[in-house]
Nucleic acid binder design. Sequence first.
DNA 1: CGTACTTTTGAATCGCATCAAATCTGGTGG
DNA 2: CCACCAGATTTGATGCGATTCAAAAGTACG
Lengths: 224, 224
Amino acid sequence: MLATRVAWPYDPSHMDDLGAELDWTALLAMQPALGCIPHALRSSARQVKAEAGQVLFRVGDPVRQVFLVVAGEARLFRFSSNGTEVVLQRARGGFFAEASLDSRRYHCEAVASVASTLWAFPATLFRQRLEESAAFRRAWQSLLAQEIRRLRAQCERLSLNGAADRVIHYIECEGIDGEVMLHQSRKSWAAELGLSHEALYRTLRNMQHGGILHVNGARLALRQ
Amino acid sequence: MLATRVAWPYDPSHMDDLGAELDWTALLAMQPALGCIPHALRSSARQVKAEAGQVLFRVGDPVRQVFLVVAGEARLFRFSSNGTEVVLQRARGGFFAEASLDSRRYHCEAVASVASTLWAFPATLFRQRLEESAAFRRAWQSLLAQEIRRLRAQCERLSLNGAADRVIHYIECEGIDGEVMLHQSRKSWAAELGLSHEALYRTLRNMQHGGILHVNGARLALRQ
DNA sequence: CGTACTTTTGAATCGCATCAAATCTGGTGG
DNA sequence: CCACCAGATTTGATGCGATTCAAAAGTACG
């Protein structure tokens, strides 16, 4: 009962021959929280250009790297008993496998679902820095705590029935004072909200007509 | 533009006059991960019996306690600009406000939505132990990492369209080898899956008739 | 200028939420 | 022990809203 595995050959050495320069400042502007990462660790990161379908790691592989999605999407999943994929995370614009820092081996598969740009931090150095630097440790713990809060809010959002309710919840949680600046396409926002993109477009239109929402490009503001 | 606040008077001293003995072993059996908590911290926890609607803390209150839900449910929320509640977390059977350890003040409101039993750990001692003990720190980080993995999987589960898909995803992720033991009522499980309890009952029935699922009390097993 | 992707609207279908009600369960007190 | 009650479980009927399929227009990029 073998599963339909991705066609890509699994060759970790693929990731080593792409040593493009890293644009840290641009990334930092998008994700200010990354500022907590020490310089030594930062400069040891390697940029990885992954093609669509490329395997990043497999179940049981020793944890050598922690990843950061700069562009594209990585999909983490396990194979269920009947061979189908059970998606654990669709990482887009953030860390993944960072919770594997305290594991010796990966507990799931990771594949770039589209052509993606990733940063790979060496796990050993990451652990070492966490042990050495109390400041980095505190910042990292703060990052983890922030991620937990964000995820819990997202779970609550996804358990709302109405599309409009999810939009409102998102703006209230991720924005400031009923106003938010979208940093992604509406299509991918729809995926984050657990909606089809058509449903999101229609909901936004109806909310505008109803006077609940004001849209100005990437800027969304709740009225009243 | 005042919101419809809960009727309960906010009196923190309510929580101090209930010093029932703590049943640590029973709790540990339910949540083995709690074993990482040092004895000194464990014994400093106070049991809190909260009535339905009782306020546990408010936005801006100094972070004095980290909570663990033993029975019942705590609801964390913020008031949106138009006064409605935006639920950030419905904590049932686990920690909450533990991500506030690195904050000086709570960033949301917390109310027991039903009559609940909680444990309150003093935040100061918690932070202190985390600084002192490297073992506890590692265990705690491991607990946070585990929570992140769990939440990400739950988000993926909630973004699945079909009720049966969510059930399968749950069993594959939370169970072992396509088999899981439910530690809660099906009604509350339905809430966790983002479904109405009727939809869950019907789905379970259909899955049994379809031969996909085998149900034996609290034991659910996927077939094939 | 062509290609790939996003944005937008339409129509039809289907599944889940909702309301309603009956049964079953565990626990409490007379 | 039984009456009683609150809550969970289970089934039915109905309506709405999101998904899906389809297609057109807009947009970015090489």
